[in-house]
């Protein structure tokens, strides 16, 4: 689905990602872990194509196509989606209007999906204005349900979410990733940033990657890696230079 090759990224004149290599196959969900400031969000924002992230070396190849220099909206139209951790508030723009604008020719689905995400009464509210943590995540998932991306990146989907909401959000994300389908007929892929791993109660991950200092330090089983981090913290990872 997506292949990242020897990727180096700068913000301003500071190198923030170094020599990133990552391959996520069709139907696979991977987990990205690492301490704060290690470059996880930078990586997914680079994949999405945000302007402040300059790729100096390497390539991002999506479904066989080099998308390294494509504008954001073209990546989105090819099927890449991002659940923001802290999306901006847009004064005046109603969530419902945004969903209709991004729904292509399927505005009728807006009400249906909004109801499924308990967001019906938010359609007339300004996007993210005064939303609680859980409401922001529900709004993000709702936007992705309308967008129907094939490759979904989720930036800390469980942060700031209470127990009641995490089940709703976790189940909805599982559906976005076609976890309800048999592995053979599952085509959607995902990359999830998580600190707590709570989201893995709803979504089975196929692999985990540990980031430190702008590098991916190791790969492995996501649950095992999270258990290690829970037991020992990130210190061993920071000290460990093994790739």
């Amino acid at each position: 689905m997506i292949r990242i090759e020897d990727l180096h990224v700068e913000i301003g004149d500071r190198e923030v990602l170094r020599d990133i290599n990552l391959h996520i196959g069709e139907g696979e969900t991977h987990v990205l872990m690492g301490p704060n400031g290690s470059g996880k969000t930078t990586l997914i924002r680079t994949i999405m194509g945000f302007a402040d992230y300059h790729v100096t070396e390497g390539a991002i190849v999506y479904r066989g196509r080099d998308i390294t220099n494509l504008p954001i909206h073209e990546r989105a139209r090819y099927g890449i989606g991002l659940m923001f951790q802290r999306p901006p508030t847009i004064a005046g723009l109603k969530l419902g209007k945004m969903l209709v604008a991004t729904s292509g020719n399927r505005p009728e689905e807006v009400a249906e999906y909004a109801a499924a995400m308990n967001m019906a009464e938010f359609l007339e509210r300004d996007i993210n204005a005064g939303f609680s943590g859980g409401e922001i995540k529900r709004s993000e998932v709702l936007q992705l349900m309308i967008q129907q991306p094939d490759f979904v990146m989720l930036d800390e989907p469980e942060s700031g979410v209470d127990l009641e909401n995490i089940s709703l959000i976790g189940s909805a994300i599982a559906k976005l990733l076609e976890k309800d389908r048999h592995i053979v007929s599952r085509h959607k892929s995902g990359l999830i940033i998580t600190h707590t791993g709570y989201i893995l109660d709803y979504i089975e991950a196929d692999a985990g990657h540990m980031m430190c200092d702008g590098e991916i330090r190791c790969h492995g089983n996501a649950r095992e890696m999270l258990q290690l981090i829970k037991a020992k913290g990130y210190r061993e990872c920071i000290e460990c230079k093994k790739i």
Partner: peptide, 16 residues
């Protein structure tokens, strides 16, 4: 950029 990440091009996002 937020709206572009949902598939609107820059002009559409600005107008929205």
């Amino acid at each position: 950029e937020y709206l572009m990440s949902r598939g609107l091009d820059e002009d559409e996002a600005t107008a929205t």
